[in-house]
Each structure stands twice: as structure tokens, then as C-alpha cells.
Deep mutational scan, measured.
Amino acid sequence: MDETGKELVLALYDYQEKSPREVTMKKGDILTLLNSTNKDSWKVEVKITVNGKTYERQGFVPAAYVKKL
């Protein structure tokens, strides 16, 4: 869990989004878990840094590609 009590997951593999509802992640990324009720895909939040500014983006990733921490 992070400092706000949200559950975290670790990306086990790289994943490139295939639709606007998904998010891209790299192996080793730590993501905030938002919903894990679907056995196939979990909703997560990723933090992306562009030019020194951090943005948050929500979307789905394959459940088999992440592990709860």
C-alpha cells in the first residue's frame, strides 16, 4: 500500500496499450490498483513524467501482467 492506503501492483512485463481504455507500463513499474474485480484486466493508475511534470492516467492492464504488493 502507498502512503494514502491504496493498494499497489508491480508490473511483471512490459505492456503497450491497445486501446484508449488501457495504459502502457514497463516491467518494474509500480502502479496504484483501483479495481481488481475482473479476473482478466485490472484498472490501475499510472504516473507519467513529461518534461519534469507528473501526470496521472487511469486505464486497464492484463491482470496476469501485474502482481499485488
Rank of each mutant, 00 (worst) to 15 (best):
E3W: 13
E3H: 14
E17N: 06
E22M: 03
I48Q: 07
K39A: 13
A63N: 02
T54Y: 09
L12A: 02
G5Q: 13
T4M: 13
F60A: 01
S36V: 06
L34N: 02
T54P: 07
G5P: 14
K26F: 08
Y55L: 09
Y15G: 01
V9S: 00
T54I: 12
E56V: 15
D40W: 14
F60V: 04
A63P: 07
G59C: 08
D29W: 11
N38P: 03
D14I: 06
E3L: 12
T54A: 08
T4H: 13
T37K: 09
K68E: 05
W42Q: 00
V46E: 00
T32K: 13
E22I: 02
E7A: 10
Y65H: 06
E45C: 15
K43W: 15
V61A: 01
K27E: 05
T49D: 07
S19C: 11
N35K: 05
D40Y: 15
A64I: 11
S41T: 11
Y55P: 00
E45K: 12
L12M: 08
K67D: 06
V61N: 02
Y65L: 13
I30S: 00
D14N: 07
K26G: 03
Q58K: 07
E45I: 14
I48A: 06
E22N: 03
S41H: 15
Q16S: 11
T32V: 15
Y15D: 00
V44C: 05
T24E: 01
I48D: 04
K18D: 05
S19K: 05
N51E: 11
N51D: 13
L12N: 01
L33A: 01
K68R: 12
E45Y: 07
R57A: 06
K67I: 15
E17Y: 03
T32N: 07
S36E: 12
E17I: 05
V50D: 07
A64Q: 11
S41W: 15
L10H: 03
L33F: 01
K18M: 10
E56Q: 14
Q58N: 07
Y13I: 08
N35Q: 09
Y13Q: 13
V50M: 10
E45D: 03
L33P: 00
L8Q: 09
K27A: 11
M1T: 13
L69D: 02
V9K: 00
D14V: 04
I30N: 01
S36M: 09
V9L: 10
L69I: 14
D29M: 12
G59N: 00
V61C: 06
V23D: 02
I48R: 07
A63V: 05
V66H: 03
V23G: 02
V23W: 05
K43E: 14
R57M: 08
K39E: 10
N35D: 15
T49I: 13
L34R: 01
Y65I: 07
M25K: 01
T4Q: 13
T37F: 09
L10T: 05
Q58I: 11
F60N: 05
P20C: 11
G28N: 06
K47W: 08
T54V: 13
K18F: 04
K26I: 07
L34F: 03
Y65T: 08
V44A: 00
V46H: 08
Y55Q: 09
M1V: 12
L34A: 01
K47L: 11
E7C: 15
